[in-house]
Amino acid sequence: MPDEMAPAPEPPGPPSLFGVTVRRAFVTGRIYLGIATAVSVAIAVVIGVASAAVFASFVPLLLPVYMVLAGMGGLMVFTSDRMKGVYEYLLAYGLTPRRLFLNAILASLVLVATVLGLALGVGLAVFVGRGNTVTGPLAVALALYTVPMSFTAVAFAATVGMYWSSVSSPREGLVSPVGLAPLVGVLPPLVTLFVGNAVGGAYADLAVVLALLVFVLVVLALIAAVDRLLPRERFLSSA
């Protein structure tokens, strides 16, 4: 008789928590964010004032390296939430590991968009204000390399860092996921530049785009495999 109870109505799904994750990433990663903003804007402005040729050659290549630092907030929120039991709480209320993973990566990308927009905006304003024009090669370098590479490098660093954080025991300092992430993050820019330089000539741009694409695919594959490679227990702190 008791089992005849009417089925309870399905409650609405849990909120995405994306907005609050972004806000927390700004606060938690504020030191990295400050360093990345200060250095990248300073580089863009100083080189823009000093030499148009150097600006066009170096700024597009340097910015993605500093964007890796700018995007650390998302990874920091992830590692903190895992260790402090926030994910344990959120999983109990129906959020999925993939949602938590995506929130952290997207939060990192929002941080990068903010700092990159600021550095490029200020740098290009100074560059153009000094009487220079944005040439075709500079525009191509920014569009094909600087912007996509900044996002790819950060997504790669955050994804690898989150996997590292999920499969390892808590570590502090340089060998922690947050300590290693900047080193991992410079890998995509370095490899891509190396491939572009090695191919050279007319196919250099194509090689850069293809190398970038490989890193994007790696990130997407790792995100898609979260539920399979990282069982829920990986999101729990040690009991």
Partner: peptide, 12 residues
């Protein structure tokens, strides 16, 4: 569910 950890979201 209240876990043995605080579960307080830092940054807020």
């Amino acid at each position: 569910y209240l876990s043995h950890l605080d579960g307080v979201p830092e940054g807020l």
